[in-house]
Design a protein around this nucleic acid. Structure first.
Lengths: 211, 211
DNA sequence: GATCTATGTTACCGATCGGTACGTCACCTG
DNA sequence: CAGGTGACGTACCGATCGGTAACATAGATC
């Protein structure tokens, strides 16, 4: 389950003003989170040991295990944070101009395409985690499935706002395309198939709007 | 590099007729290959230890290391075999009716869609391996990149045979779709986005043929 | 200052990792 | 039968895996 662990700044009564907890409350757990995020995304979860994480974070192992019950739960926490951030960024991009969903999707796609062309692009950390942990009972896999399901729902809603006759089918078609960008981006690099994603998305949207 | 290791049947001089090597030459190496193929695909390469492989194959570790120089090379061999088989199946499907490339692609897609809907579908082992081994110097990753590059070339050639004005762009768009099926198939299972892949492929092909 | 709590550190655990030294056994050749 | 040739198995290697016990230390509260 891995309920969030930090946030102990708020439990002492808010009397003294200057600095309630200041030193400790942020250090270990948050540094571990940041290190895990970097290392897990770039190298994969299974490839990174807890020793490497704590060493990268400048802390020691017991500090990790006081904030996270296990490596699996740390991985789940990593996926939860990354997934929520990703969904929030997607929402924010779409919300920037609510009257033009198609144009805003294009904005998001331009960013995705740019990222996918960078060397050492590693695709979607959520998808990668599902590849690394096929067992559906695994904590990391459960978070990955949850995030992906919510992203799929957003694409269906977006397709509806664009006026698709079958929004769920357009949403799914777009999701196929995006997952293709994640995979082929890390496989082929800059000149890879991801270069055509915007044209392809346009074609699929047109297909679902006309007629 | 991992040059194939078996094939020692041919080196004794062909004098005696009945059975030159008979007992040993197939057993250990091939059993290991089959076990590795099953276990690597279903659980992932990193998740499977050499002990599990040899135990599943009913042999012992030294037998593995006599036929394969390392686990990494065994993984590369697994990817090489699976990739070649996959490319050959693709070619065979297309060759079954050379005058109708679009129809034959649809045949291949129907099969892909059916596989992707089965429970415990694990996507494309080649893509999965690239996710597990981001290091481009890794033997498994090199094989994965090679296979994917050849598949991409086939899709471009197929798009050309279908009469696309920009075959490389249609081929890449289709590849995005297929990689999306691999990923979303194992993420969402039977009712997932892969259900729309045929309609989406049709829309993309139409887009590249008309005008 | 005494105490409590939360965080940090040293040193260690058993299990498992990929990999190997070495002996055994079956079989073919002389 | 003597000896060579491979394939196979027993038993083991050091390294690393995820995880923990025991102790030190610093800050807040009384």
């Amino acid at each position: 389950m891995a309920k969030r662990v930090e946030a102990k700044a708020s439990l002492p009564s808010p009397r003294k003003s200057p600095r309630p907890p200041k030193r400790a409350p942020k250090r270990a757990a948050e540094r571990i989170r940041e290190s895990a995020r970097d290392l897990f995304y770039r190298q994969g979860i299974r490839a990174v040991g807890v020793d490497e994480i704590v060493s990268h974070a400048g802390v020691t192992k017991p500090s990790l295990y006081r904030s996270f019950p296990s490596k699996d739960e740390l991985a789940a926490d990593y996926l939860r944070h990354m997934g929520e951030d990703g969904l929030a960024r997607f929402d924010a991009t779409l919300a920037a101009n609510p009257s033009d969903p198609r144009g805003q999707l294009r904005v998001w796609l331009v960013q995705l395409q740019a990222k996918s062309a960078k060397r050492d692009y590693r695709g979607c950390g959520t998808t990668n985690a599902a590849v690394e942990y096929p067992d559906r009972k695994h904590p990391a896999r459960k978070v990955a499935s949850d995030i992906k399901g919510r992203f799929r729902a957003r694409l269906t809603a977006l397709a509806a706002r664009m006026g698709a006759r079958k929004p769920d089918r357009l949403g799914d078609a777009l999701l196929l395309l995006f997952e293709g960008v994640y995979a082929s981006g890390q496989l082929f690099g800059a000149g890879g198939p991801a270069r055509v994603v915007i044209e392809a998305a346009d074609a699929l949207i047109d297909h679902h709007l006309k007629r």
